[in-house]
Design a protein around this nucleic acid. Structure first.
Length: 280
DNA sequence: CCTCGGCATCTTTATGTAGT
DNA sequence: ACTACATAAAGATGCCGAGG
């Protein structure tokens, strides 16, 4: 998709890009073959120089270049070029950000492998592991997860970052991660009633000695992260469908790995009744 | 050349929202 | 209550071609 992108060039907005597309100039290669472009000579010069630069930067795998130039509502275009170096991630904490709050668990998924990090065990390893990836994907992670990780773990998390909250929101899907999943028909087998506040209860139950509560928490955490990949592909295809480019660039839905953790229904039921049925 | 009008892009401001 | 990201609306800038 980057090879079909022009709106990262200064002076080239959504309108100019669309008119180029509709003139049959779908990609960077077409620009050099076409003798007379529907542009002024000044714009043509900036177009040529920026496309030469873009080809080199893409070849070098430099996502920062495009991330810095793309309008924020077009960052989703980075996905296919960096899909083999993408990290889907999500954190659980003891609260929304009081100074006393801390990260309890993190799950990182790269499309192949699920890795988990637990406070008191290996949480700090996340800072090293996440640095190996060149694109981050999260839900509301730009506002919540990434600042929390920077503050508590000192990881820079300075890679390009696609926050699905805004991509899905621009497609009309709002109401949080669970709401989006529901609207798009993505199941959460056995974990449909667990949310972030219940995750706090699971953590405290684990602290009191219930090992199955941690498994349940990690199952919930991992399911969120695995579903991020499905959401990313669905959102990407939906954004693509709004362009006049062909359908040939659509991505197939990924096959999700099975959850490496088992939720314990007895623990869920007990915590539910202990804390009242009304809110859960 | 110079100015003007139309259009697209860029900037500024205010408002909204989701995470545990 | 918080945070820091986004969009939306409104205003400013600047490019480009037409016409004098």
């Amino acid at each position: 998709m980057l090879k079909h992108t022009f709106c990262h060039i200064p002076g080239f907005g959504a309108g100019t890009e669309r008119s180029l597309w509709q003139a049959g100039l779908h990609g960077w290669d077409d620009i050099f073959n076409q003798p007379n472009l529907p542009l002024s000579s000044k714009k043509e010069a900036t177009l040529h120089s920026h496309i030469r630069e873009s080809i080199a930067q893409l070849q070098a795998g430099n996502g920062d270049y495009f991330y810095g130039l793309l309008p924020s509502d077009q960052q989703w275009r980075l996905f296919p070029a960096f899909r083999d170096q993408v990290a889907y991630f999500d954190i659980e904490t003891t609260g929304l950000g009081d100074p006393s709050d801390y990260i309890t668990t993190i799950v990182l998924y790269d499309g192949r492998q699920v890795r988990s990090y637990v406070s008191g065990q290996n949480l700090g390893d996340f800072a090293r592991d996440i640095a190996d990836y060149r694109l981050l994907v999260s839900y509301n992670g730009k506002t919540f997860d990434a600042p929390f990780v920077r503050r508590c773990l000192g990881a820079p998390l300075d890679q390009p970052h696609i926050d699905l909250r805004y991509v899905l929101g621009s497609l009309g899907y709002r109401g949080g991660l669970k709401g989006c999943e529901q609207q798009l028909g993505i199941p959460r087998q056995g974990l449909e009633d667990i949310d972030g506040s219940f995750a706090i209860l699971l953590w405290h139950d684990y602290q009191r000695g219930n090992a199955k509560a941690l498994d349940t928490l990690l199952a919930y955490n991992a399911l969120d992260v695995i579903n991020l990949e499905i959401l990313m592909v669905l959102a990407y295809n939906a954004k693509l469908a709004k362009t006049p480019l062909g359908l040939e660039h659509h991505l197939p839905l990924p096959t999700s790995p099975s959850l490496p953790f088992a939720a314990d229904q007895d623990t869920i039921q007990r915590l539910r009744s202990q804390h009242g049925w009304s809110s859960y």
